[in-house]
Amino acid sequence: MKQVAGTILMTDGENTQFLVTRDDKTGTYQFFKTPVVADKTALASILEQMRDLLSIELNDLRLSELTTCEVNHEDISLFVFDHLVISPELQDRVTKAGLSFVDGSQLHDLFHDVKIDAAPVFD
């Protein structure tokens, strides 16, 4: 099944944090991912999942980057969003969903699999 990944950036002026999930078995970080719904685009699928899981107002998201990343030896589209306001309520919903905002300095292994110069996967 085709997957799509997404993350939300949170910047405080000095540090940038990324919305990620952590694998309990390996302790590694991963981008939030979801299957691409058969009758929807990859973008629509990730937005719908973020809206439903985190109760995010989609009007508050701004697409800042589209690239690919490798997950289990498969290239998948990675959508990077800026969020206008990261409220304490959103932080709480993120935590309850098993996700977290993690400082980019802790995500070197995750970024190793991001392919900045690759074209997104649209199929």
Rank of each mutant, 00 (worst) to 15 (best):
E14V: 15
K40Q: 12
G27Y: 04
G13L: 05
V37N: 08
A38E: 14
K40H: 12
R22K: 15
E14T: 15
T34P: 02
M10W: 09
Q30T: 08
K25I: 14
F32W: 11
R22E: 08
E14Y: 11
F18K: 01
L9D: 03
T21R: 10
D12I: 08
N15P: 00
T26L: 09
L9Y: 12
G27V: 04
L9K: 12
F18L: 07
K25A: 14
K40L: 09
E14G: 13
F18R: 01
G27T: 04
V36M: 03
Q30I: 04
N15R: 07
V20G: 00
F32G: 01
L19M: 08
L9M: 10
D12H: 14
R22H: 03
G13F: 04
D23Q: 13
P35C: 11
T28S: 07
T16H: 02
T16L: 00
M10T: 04
D39K: 14
V37T: 08
E14H: 12
F18T: 02
Y29D: 08
P35E: 09
T34N: 09
T28C: 07
V36I: 13
G13D: 08
T16G: 03
T16C: 04
A38I: 10
L9H: 11
T34I: 12
T16Y: 00
T21Y: 03
K40F: 06
G27S: 01
E14F: 15
T26V: 10
D12T: 11
K33H: 15
T41H: 14
D12L: 10
D39M: 10
F32P: 00
D23F: 14
T41Q: 14
V20C: 03
I8D: 00
P35A: 12
D24T: 11
N15Q: 10
M10E: 05
F18G: 00
L19A: 02
A38R: 11
D23S: 15
T16F: 00
T21K: 09
K40G: 00
T26S: 15
Q17Y: 04
T34E: 10
F18Y: 14
T34K: 08
Q17E: 12
T41C: 11
T16Q: 06
A38C: 05
F31C: 03
E14W: 07
T16R: 03
D12P: 05
T26G: 04
T21H: 08
K25N: 13
K33S: 15
D39N: 15
T41E: 09
L19P: 01
T11L: 01
F32D: 03
I8K: 01
T11R: 07
T34Y: 11
A38P: 05
Y29K: 09
R22M: 08
D12R: 08
V20P: 00
P35Q: 09
Q17P: 00
T28D: 14
F32S: 01
Q17S: 15
Q17A: 08
K25S: 14
T16I: 04
Y29I: 11
Y29F: 15
D24E: 13
N15I: 05
T26C: 06
K33I: 05
D12F: 11
L19E: 02
K25G: 04
L19T: 03
I8W: 02
K33C: 07
D12Q: 04
V20N: 02
T21M: 13
G27F: 04
A38Q: 13
F18A: 00
T11F: 04
R22I: 05
D12V: 10
T28A: 07
Q30M: 11
R22W: 00
D24V: 13
T16V: 09
V37W: 04
K40R: 14
L9E: 07
R22L: 09
V37C: 05
